[in-house]
């Protein structure tokens, strides 16, 4: 994309050697700015990463950037400690237990609704969809008290189903919106042909629409998974102080409030929580960006 043919790229024309050198020099400030920004953007994460391998006393007395001056002293003890003694190991499992099922539920429920919104004609379809669009930006804060009371009444606080259901519901407006926009753009002839050949709506949904929507489903899945993985608020409210079900975000935030200056713990705990999102991000960046672009309205 960076060649001269790209939109708003540098103009492409033959140039002499001196011209090229002049151009390269004149573009110096440009590179300086971009590289500077990139370095600035990496510094905070790099600092966290480096510090997570340093000992408690070193972190407290010297800046992490001095760690590269010999003698090099790094340790894995911090990780060992947070994963076992500080519950980050259990929390990692809890985060998986929360995010994976809730992501799958969201996709299934949203895909069903999106199919109806795009391929079944019924009275009030547009009005109902506008409700979904309106719900896109409703802050979940508006729902916390009544839902918490409901869960308390049912004895569900501190259970995984409580967060699965809540996460699924909160993710639905965005998921339905995204999938409906994708489904409705599928060629009409394909669906009509399937109906003529004897497909029911359910067959058309499972055999035609879903297989053809893999890119959209993947984008939504990744986006939703990361969103849930990174959630603090919902887990904090509905899982409350139940440590045995707390995901990593909750555990880290309680580490911050009880060990605010124990940086060897905080840095390694934070990095544990970042490993999976970073892998997902770098491996599936394309889908993630597609999800972002499709859902630029989500709050």
């Amino acid at each position: 994309m960076a060649d001269g043919g790209a939109a708003y790229g540098a103009p492409d024309r033959p140039e002499s050697r001196t011209q090229r050198i002049v151009r390269k020099l004149s573009r110096g400030p440009l590179h300086l700015v971009i590289i500077g920004v990139c370095l600035a953007w990496m510094t905070p994460t790099a600092g966290l990463f480096v510090s997570s391998f340093r000992t408690r006393s070193e972190i407290a007395t010297t800046g992490w950037w001095t760690a590269f001056v010999p003698p090099l002293e790094f340790t894995l003890e911090n990780y060992q400690h947070v994963l076992t003694a500080r519950g980050m190991g259990q929390s990692f499992i809890n985060s998986v237990m929360i995010s994976v099922p809730a992501t799958l539920f969201t996709i299934i429920v949203a895909a069903l609704a999106a199919y109806a919104f795009s391929w079944i004609e019924f009275r009030g379809r547009e009005a109902l969809f506008l409700v979904v669009v309106a719900l896109l930006v409703v802050p979940i804060q508006l729902t916390l008290i009544p839902v918490l009371r409901m869960y308390a009444g049912l004895g569900m606080t501190g259970t995984f189903p409580a967060v699965w259901l809540a996460h699924t519901a909160y993710g639905l407006p965005f998921a339905v919106f995204l999938l409906r926009n994708f489904f409705i753009a599928l060629p009409k002839d394909l669906l009509e042909s399937a109906y003529l050949e004897g497909a029911s709506h359910f067959v058309a949904f499972t055999r035609i629409v879903m297989p053809l929507s893999v890119p959209a489903l993947a984008a939504l899945g990744i986006f939703q998974f990361l969103w849930l993985w990174n959630d603090l608020l919902v887990a904090l409210i509905y899982l409350g102080g139940f440590r045995d079900v707390a995901p990593m975000t909750v555990t880290i935030s309680s580490l911050v409030s009880s060990f605010g200056s124990e940086w060897h713990l905080l840095t390694s705990a934070a990095f544990v929580s970042m490993v999976l999102p970073l892998i997902v991000f770098f491996a599936l960046q394309k889908y993630f960006v597609e999800g972002i672009l499709a859902g630029a309205v989500k709050g």
Binding site: W41, P44, T45, G47, L48, S51, L226, W229, N230, D231, L232, M248, T249, I252, S253, V256, G260, W263, L266, T267, A269, A270, F271, S273, M274, P277, L278, V280, F281, F288, I292
Partner: peptide, 16 residues
């Protein structure tokens, strides 16, 4: 990249 990270982790990063 920071978009992929939780606000919680980001908060730790910036406190640091």
């Amino acid at each position: 990249v920071p978009m992929a990270v939780s606000f919680t982790a980001a908060a730790v990063i910036w406190r640091f």
